[in-house]
Structure formats: C-alpha cells, structure tokens
Design a protein around this nucleic acid. Structure first.
Lengths: 228, 228
DNA sequence: ACGATGCTTCGGTTACGATCGAAGTATGAA
DNA sequence: TTCATACTTCGATCGTAACCGAAGCATCGT
C-alpha cells in the first residue's frame, strides 16, 4: 500500500489558500518578491516567508537573490502546466475563488499563462492557426506545417530557430475560462513576445490580464480571423 | 486577487494522506467499497466515510449503490489524468511514499493506469508502435496511421469502431516510474482488454500491478519488439 | 558608520480538521 | 422477525499547521 509517488505532499502544498494564491499569481510568468507574494496571499511577510520556504523545498518554486530582494518563480514549465491543469480541473468542477469580480471579464478575454497567451484571444489564435492550415492538430498534439512556417516567418518568428531549442515547439494547454485548448510551448511564447515588442499589447501591473491597444487589437484580429 | 478557479480546494482534497491513498488505489480503475478504501487509507470506516463524502462533493468521486455495498470510482477520465499527472510530478520532485518496498518492481514493470497499461511494458508498447510506424507521434500528440489501423485489426482491435466514440482514440500519459509516455485513450484501454481476454495477463487482488503469464509475456514481447 | 528596507527565524497562540467511539439507518440473510 | 453486515451521522478529543509579534540578519543608500 505504500508504493509509488506521494501525491499528498504536493496536494497539501497547493491545498493551502495562501500558497495557492501565490502559485496562481506566479503563473503570470513574472518573478515576484516575497513582499508582493505576501500581498496576494493576504498574509504577513513572516507567514509568507515560511510558506515560500515550504514551496521551495517541495520543488515547486525557485528563488533568485537580487540585491536585497528575493525573486520567486515557478520551478519550471512542468510546474506551470500542473497549476494550469489543476485550474482547468477546478473550473470544470465549479470550484471558483469567490464570485466573479469586476476584473474577471478582462482575464477571460486575454491573459498570460506562464509565458504565452491564454483566454478568449489565446484560444482564437490557435483556432485560426489550425483553420488556416498553419498548424496541424492531430489528436491531442500540434505541429507546424511548412505553410505555417513560412507564414509565421512573415510575422517575424524564426520557427527553425525555435525548433533547435530543447523545449517543445507546440503544446496545447487547456484553457480554464474557455475550456478549450490554446497554444503553449516555445512558439506560444514567441508569439506573445512579438505582440509585446510591437506594442500591440502590454501586461498589467498586479494581474495576469493582458491589455491590447486599439491598433494592436485590430491587427491581432485581422491576423487571426475567425472562420465561419 | 480573487479571480479564476480555486485550486486550493482540490489541492486540499488530495493533500490528506488518507484521501491520497484512496485516490491512488482508485487509479487502478476498479470500483472499491468504503470498507476496502478505509483499509488502503489506514483509517477506520467512520473516518473513511467522511473523507469519501468530501471527495464526492468535491467532484473527484462518484458512488454507486449495489445492495448494501457502496462502490466508489474516480469521477471520470479527467480525474484519473489529474491524479496520474500529479504522480508524475511528485516522482520528478522525489516525493516518494516511503522507501521502495518489495512489491515495487512488479509495479514498475506493468500496472494499470485507470484503464490502460502503464509501467515499463506500457512504455515499451507505445515505443514499439511508434517505431513500427503504426502510430505517429507528432509533438505531444499521437495518431494511428492507416498502416497501424490494419495492423491493430490483425490483433483484433476495431479501430474504426473506437473512433466513433466520444473519447479520444489516443492520448499520451506520462508514466511516473519510467518518466516517459505510455498510451492512454480508448485504444490504450482496448489493447489492455484484449491482453486480459486472451489470458496473457491478469490483475492482482489488492494492487495496481499486472501479472503476465509466461506465454502471454512471450507473445507480448514478440508483438511489441524493442528497436535498436 | 548609520539608518532603512527586505526578508528570515523564534516563540506562543489559535483554529481547523482528522480521528475515533458510540449511536443511528439501510439492506440482506436466516 | 431477528440478527448481521455495510455504511453514515453525531459528539468529543487531539495534533498539526497557519498565523502574527518580536527579534535577528543581510543588503543598500547616504
């Protein structure tokens, strides 16, 4: 009966509300300080410190000292995927964090998921790429077609360069708000990066939501049209 | 700050050792009674009852009355995938349930993961199917080739029939003992079923491990050879 | 050198939930 | 009907862990 890995430990780590809030905040992809994380957890700095230590020894977090600050990030992409998949599962069972607040719509429209675009816009982007034949969706997996490679080149993304990295190019990530897949992996990251670089969109201060500029939104929507 | 799904609730549900053991036992795929689950959790029946009630209202379990017994199963395949992915994650961080016991090798060799084959043999089977060109592995996704479809037909599996079901045909499931993918989905289930039907293998009483008969093992190994 | 900021460690309190004994309900068997 | 089995609910206990105040380090600015 005492065989195999122990899911209770990581379950308990994620199971505390303060820690869960911290992890959710870190799913936004950027590194946060202990003070900032204490705020999102709704606890004092001392308590946050012990929580963060537990998460780190549990292998969910890594920290990086920078001057007198300590920046925490999720340990790796696997951790981010676990958090996101738990969010999807929680959403499917109706476990919501309070009633939907006023900022909820912005989050559902476009937000950051670790390092790529999620929400309505993220799902739309992947749908459009598949519909136009730039990406092949076979079963659960995604792959870029030759046609798609040249098209992405036009947008300014060096697909062959991304291919040489260790990280998978395409990954599908289940979106908790849309309950459909959006594009993760190094290509998902590269696409979001170019949106930021071109000024089409920007991150918001204390939230995971992504705000598009009027011109950026127009460019985005025409670049990734919705098929009938 | 209180936006999106609440991962703390399901985290806490999985985070209790007794509940985690029950869920792990139910990953074996068969329905278990409250008394049996109390045993695997190492607790009394009363305590188990309250745990099971919590897991059910949390959406992780479903129960089915049958006479004076109550049979519990994981709520659906999504739940099974979540548990399995948490096992993979826990294994990657070195969170083990005690030191490896004597039954551990059998588990690593072949075991049931919800309704399909996992462990060394499960990984070998998928590897062999991919190497022989029966299954295409593109990115993270899997799909059966026409060649594979006819080959599986010879083994006695009606692929076109499986395709018509709502459940995805192929899914890759990360194996916690091998740290590589094995085959899930309706095809994975169908393959394991035929092994049982032909008497090549059988389930064990109180464990997830799968025992192959000498002839069954030989048939299996020759059917899914290891490439150089 | 000195104070301010960011964070950790220590000690003590408190609250929640896991646990079990005992009693209650439902189903099956004799 | 009566007893036994399977399970749930109630009530009370107990242990753990979350929490914060206070004190202790470390780093930066001046």
């Amino acid at each position: 009966m005492k065989e195999g890995p122990d899911i209770a430990q990581i379950g308990a780590l994620i199971g505390d509300p303060a820690r869960a809030n911290m992890l959710a905040a870190l799913s936004g992809g950027r590194a946060l300080t202990a003070t900032e994380l204490a705020a999102v957890g709704g606890i004092t700095l001392q308590t946050a410190s012990t929580h963060l230590a537990k998460l780190e020894t549990g292998g969910l977090l890594t920290q990086r000292k920078q001057g007198r600050h300590r920046y925490f990030t999720l340990a790796d992409e696997a951790t981010a995927l676990l958090i996101e998949s738990m969010m999807g599962f929680a959403a499917s069972r109706g476990h919501l964090r309070h009633r939907p607040g006023p900022k909820e719509p912005a989050l559902r429209k476009a937000r950051i998921c670790y390092d790529h675009l999620a929400g309505d816009y993220g799902v739309r982007m992947l749908d459009s790429l598949v519909a136009s034949g730039a990406i092949d969706a076979i079963g659960e997996g995604l792959s870029v077609t030759p046609k798609g490679e040249s098209r992405l080149q036009c947008i300014g993304i060096d697909v062959s360069g991304l291919k040489s990295s260790r990280r998978p190019l395409c990954r599908s990530c289940l979106d908790w708000s849309e309950r459909r897949a959006h594009l993760a992996g190094s290509l998902g990251k590269a696409l979001l990066s170019t949106f930021f670089d071109r000024g089409w969109a920007r991150r918001t201060a204390g939230s995971r939501s992504v705000i598009f500029s009027p011109e950026g939104e127009q460019k985005f929507l025409s670049l990734f049209p919705l098929e009938a």
